[in-house]
Design a protein around this nucleic acid. Structure first.
Length: 515
RNA sequence: GGGCCGCUAGCUCAUCUGGCUAGAGCAGGGGACUUUUAAUCCCAAGGUGCCGGGUUCGAGCCCCGGGCGGCCUACCA
């Protein structure tokens, strides 16, 4: 309501004497000298690690400074108990009137305020590790009412839109998001230990290629040209292998203009790596070793519980070809050499919506996805995809019509996609042409032709194994999250509708006015 | 994109088939309390029931339209 909030007088609420305007959840500005820095000498986690074994009532004589957000306050009259939360945990502040500077001020702090506390580490008579302040300072005075201190925020919409609240009010959200960061870090370290180097390739692509998906389109004004946000970094990374970078990886934010669901965010993080002189069996070993390593680091073991079901991620993982798996689950003995129309009839029987331009390879993939994929819990490497649906994969060394490609199915969903890379420029050109034909037949997700990539291949790509892992899904798996939104810091949502209540915030809600 | 469901105080939730002035807890305000653990106790305050129409003597509840979200489904990872 008021635009002039920075002026000191809190006149509007003076009459009632209340600091929190009850209708908006806003708290009137309070007057504190906020320091420019604060010397933190201990984290709550470190203090618990060092002093949890103290006897009840013990005093250590050690003075420390902690900082964090006031999460609980129990005003006992002549003693105030506060609970401060920092990045790694919580600790109690034991503040008796007798020894606490500006005791009245301390007692009137609000939940949600950031404070810095300096004092002796003690254990209360009741056995709670605490700091008894000899000095304290406000580091940020909250202007917004604290959420329910027991339930936090349960409304999913608010949790995702106001992640900056969710992540300190919900221990579970906090842990999941920190685990994501650890997983990314551990992955990088693991790959670097194996001589992979991290690279960054363009996000703007003039050709949408490297995967089958619809791109987002944008426009560059100075060049007056349309550009696509990348759907995969694949073709750039393989150019690097042509250039002599033998082991590269990229943690690539990619963008796909498709639906949003519990497993799909329009922008997501794909780890891609390329390994010269390796084939897809090497990549399988890499994947099972990396994932089981991460499982141990994050969950403490390779057997995890996901969505109420057990999953054993210990290497090695089962390997089976797509055609074998279809036979196992349906009894159907299929082959890419079958008569196309006969196969189309079988596919239709299985409920596949058959389109005219589907060849036998595409039909087999459709049958697999319809009948078999969802029945697999995994982990299992599904190998040897049809050539028709794998335009960047090298043909199988002993199974014509198939490729040396696999996907790992874990917890019933696709975790990664990998293959022995197609290295022959003539063959690659022919595959691209096949994609062009699909596009003309109406397949909006067909891969774009990239002649510069063909030129790169003409300079020579050695045998190379390549991999793409959906890191968001890997994080979901390892943190037990059943929706991708819980592992993305700020998931894609529709713009928030600005309501009357939100206007009370005054602070420049200028996101409105877009229809 | 399709189907089903939801939206009540700053937060977490009630309000039974349409019917008195829409209730609690927490947070916030006032007061009590020298070892609390979601502290407790007393007092007062807090509502455009998502928005807009309609039906009705009467709508938080029924109907229509819109907004946002959740789940399922489709495409994808």
């Amino acid at each position: 309501m008021t635009e002039t909030s920075s002026n000191e007088s809190a006149a509007p609420d003076e009459a009632s004497g209340s600091e929190q305007s009850s209708s908006s959840g806003m708290i009137a500005p309070r007057d504190f000298d906020i320091p420019y820095r604060f010397d933190v000498t201990a984290t709550t986690a470190a203090l618990h690690a060092e002093y949890d074994e103290l006897e009840d009532g013990a005093e250590t004589g050690k003075t420390v400074s902690v900082a964090g957000r006031l999460m609980l306050k129990r005003d006992q009259g002549k003693i105030v108990f506060g609970v401060v939360q920092d990045g790694g945990g919580r600790i109690q502040i034991f503040a008796p009137a007798k020894t606490t500077p500006d005791f009245e001020g301390f007692a009137s702090l609000m939940l949600g305020d950031w404070i810095g506390v300096t004092g002796e580490v003690i254990k209360t008579r009741r056995g709670e590790l605490s700091i008894r302040p000899s000095a304290w300072t406000v580091l940020a005075a909250t202007r917004r009412a604290f959420p329910d201190k027991w339930h936090g925020i349960s409304d999913p919409d608010t949790r995702y839109r106001q992640r900056y609240v969710d992540m300190w009010v919900s221990e579970e959200s906090n842990k999941t998001l920190r685990d994501r960061s650890r997983i990314m870090s551990l992955t990088r370290r693991w790959l670097e230990d194996r001589d992979f180097m991290e690279v960054e390739t363009p996000t703007f692509h003039s050709i949408a290629s490297g995967a089958m998906a619809r791109p987002f389109t944008t426009h560059h004004n100075a060049l007056d040209m349309d550009l696509f946000l990348r759907i995969a970094p694949e073709l750039y990374l393989k150019r690097l292998t042509v250039g002599g970078f033998e082991r590269v990886f990229e943690v690539a934010r990619v963008f796909r203009n498709e639906g949003i669901s519990t497993r799909h965010n329009p922008e997501f993080t794909m780890l891609e790596l390329y390994w010269a002189y390796a084939d897809y069996t090497d990549i399988m070993e890499l994947v099972e070793n990396l994932v089981s390593h991460l499982a141990v680091e994050i969950t403490g073991g390779t057997t995890i519980d996901y969505d109420g079901r057990e999953l054993d991620l210990a290497a090695p993982w089962k390997r089976a070809s797509m055609i074998e798996l279809i036979a196992e689950h349906t009894g159907l003995e299929l082959s890419v050499d079958m008569d196309r129309d006969a196969l189309a009839a079988i596919a239709a029987e299985q409920g596949v919506e058959v389109k005219d331009h589907y060849g036998t390879g595409k039909l087999i993939l459709e049958i697999y996805e319809k009948t078999t994929e969802s029945a697999i819990w995994g982990p299992v490497f599904v190998t040897d995809y049809p050539k028709e649906v794998s335009p960047l994969s090298r043909e199988h060394r002993s199974e014509p019509g198939l490729t040396e490609r696999f996907e790992a199915i874990v917890a019933g969903r696709e975790l990664c996609n990998a293959f022995s890379e197609l290295t022959d420029p003539d063959e690659q050109l022919a595959r691209f042409e096949g994609q062009e034909a699909d596009r003309e037949a109406g397949d909006a997700e067909a891969m774009g032709m990239d002649m510069d990539y063909i030129r790169a291949l003409e300079y020579g790509l050695p045998p190379t194994g390549g991999l793409g892992i959906g890191m968001d899904r890997l994080v979901m798996l390892l943190t037990g999250s059943t929706t991708i939104r819980d592992v993305v810091l700020f998931p894609t949502l529709r713009p928030e509708q600005v309501t009357g209540a939100d206007h009370a915030s005054d602070a420049g809600d200028d996101t409105s006015g877009d229809d």
